[in-house]
Design a protein around this nucleic acid. Sequence first.
DNA 1: GTCTATAAGAAGATAGAC
DNA 2: GTCTATCTTCTTATAGAC
Lengths: 207, 207
Amino acid sequence: MDTKKRILDEALTLFSEKGYANVFVADIAEAVGIKAPSLYKHYKSKRDIFNAILNEMKLSYDKQAAMLNMNGNDASADAKVFSAVSEDSLVEMGVGLFRFFLHDGYTQKFRKMLTIEQFSNPELAELFTKQYIDDSLKYQSAMFAILCKQGILKGDNPQIMALQFHSPIYMLLTMCDREPQREAELTALLEQHIRQFSKLYTKEEQQ
Amino acid sequence: MDTKKRILDEALTLFSEKGYANVFVADIAEAVGIKAPSLYKHYKSKRDIFNAILNEMKLSYDKQAAMLNMNGNDASADAKVFSAVSEDSLVEMGVGLFRFFLHDGYTQKFRKMLTIEQFSNPELAELFTKQYIDDSLKYQSAMFAILCKQGILKGDNPQIMALQFHSPIYMLLTMCDREPQREAELTALLEQHIRQFSKLYTKEEQQ
DNA sequence: GTCTATAAGAAGATAGAC
DNA sequence: GTCTATCTTCTTATAGAC
């Protein structure tokens, strides 16, 4: 119905599978169910479609990020949850979040598109690192800092803790993006990583 | 002089910067210093050049991998080195290896090219995961298994240890690929990660 | 093996009818 | 807003002289 929006959706799907240069305007049009020239009534060029996707995803990301710091769902609150839950429920949370990032259509497609296009200009490179690494590390650092200060975890370098917690998860995610058939195997590794991380950084006297 | 070889070099450079589809045969020819039609005396098509790069890099990788298991430079020998060295020299080794992977022309270009092209076919996806993740994890798992058995490290899951050691390093490497200007900052994190990992898994009584 | 000229076709975008 | 027809440009690849 909303053709303008449907164009973005189909274009994102195609860009995430083949990359910008390998998707032709006619492909996008066909996926939407119209002819290529009709598409130019909605967007003035192919690049314009790409930019619109980028803007939409940036807005949606910023909205999410803002919510994390406004609704009480911030690092401090998460730290409270973290400190209260068992290792099992930590695993459950981690695996749930992992599955969401892996299977949510927009999230996965945008991640794959940025992966393909990350070297095509510096702006995309920055966006990639910000959304998938730096912001996560910042957030988790804050959380680990609180947990360490409270004496619940025993590390003295929250930034490195965040790096060591986040990077295995991200690596497993990108492996699933490449080879979806390995999801079960890699999810098992994710679970073991979380358990091991939890053991490593939990104060002995609290185990 | 060896035009055939120079074509592969220049093509790899261009593919790693712009991706296969954004590089034109004329671009490669110009980089080599000839005209596009001359190039067809050496390779029968653009795709043929890509495949030749792939084959060459696969061969060189397999050669390297084979050496690791034949010349005594295997996981067992590395474990001996690992167990004998101080934390400082471990950091030095790690940072040295990191800098090599980051700056070695072929290594970096091929990694970037595969990153861009990884979703274009399942064979490339498999190659990517094998070369940058699975093989490293296998190798490091074997090494950590030995070190744990010898009582030098205290973990009980070498595979997860390898995941936790390798994935931060790989993540920092890809960050440098995207934003080379951050190399110093990220190398500092690498050092802290290695020190922290070493402390976490070293038996207390040996510190 | 390198060149110039050119074929053959693909792809982005526009014109103008409906 | 969608279509058919078409323009223009770009890109791969070949032909054939040197």
